[in-house]
Amino acid sequence: MRILVQEQPFDYGAEASDFAAGRHDMGAIVTFTGVVRDVDGGLNAMEIEHYPGMTEKALEKIASEAMERWSLGDALVIHRHGRLEKGEQIMMVATAARHRKDAFEAAEFLMDYLKSRAPFWKKEHTGESAGWVAARDADETALDRW
């Protein structure tokens, strides 16, 4: 299990290759990456604030739960903070399991939980203004299925 909280960009391809390397016992690797998308009015930048210390702790707790629940061989979470431009990769998760169903489900669980249980906050900078992204009710209800 590997958790990285960092300001600098990461290489999605290299991380995915490293994660998959040497896993002869795992038949399924799922990776997901989240990208800064443009918004109406044009996004200049996305700023991500986090709570150092609690962030790592929360991500470790979420990833440990996924490891146990789906008997994963391994899990990876990378999440960036600071100022990001549109098109940049914000975060990625990867899961390795014997079969694809477990790998897909665990990756979705990780995404659902880190969206509303890991202390990150997004602020969008558009043309002349900046505003904090509001949490969506759908993100909270997404947790109910787990």
Partner: peptide, 10 residues
């Protein structure tokens, strides 16, 4: 103790 709005990671 920390106070903050609902989280918006991912």
């Amino acid at each position: 103790v920390a106070f903050f709005p609902p989280m918006t990671g991912g």
